[in-house]
């Protein structure tokens, strides 16, 4: 009985481990945000500190890094 309770707590009715769902949702949120939506908020440290907004080519390196995939995957971009 105890064992059964243990199992129902850790997995959903479909037998999906809850811990795995949590971890994967974290990966989803992080990855989609940085590739698809980040405008320098999360990876703000990559924007130069000299007061420019990182709009010039090559100055906002994280954004540039994701730039082409963002376009190609259909996310809105600049």
């Amino acid at each position: 009985m105890l064992v059964n309770n243990e199992i129902t707590k850790k997995t959903s009715a479909e037998g999906v481990p809850r811990i795995a769902v949590g971890i994967l949702l974290g990966v989803l949120a992080f990855g989609v945000f940085i590739v698809g939506f980040d405008q320098g908020e999360m990876l703000g440290f990559t924007v130069p500190a000299d007061g420019s907004e990182g709009n010039e080519p090559g100055t906002n390196w994280a954004h540039e890094f994701y730039h082409d995939m963002r376009h190609a995957a259909g996310f809105p971009c600049h």
Binding site: L25, L28, G31, E64, Y66, M69, R70
Partner: peptide, 16 residues
């Protein structure tokens, strides 16, 4: 970057 961004996007869409 597009290749690595592809890997990261794949990881996250794959998770969902």
């Amino acid at each position: 970057g597009e290749i690595i961004a592809g890997t990261i996007l794949g990881l996250s869409i794959g998770s969902l």
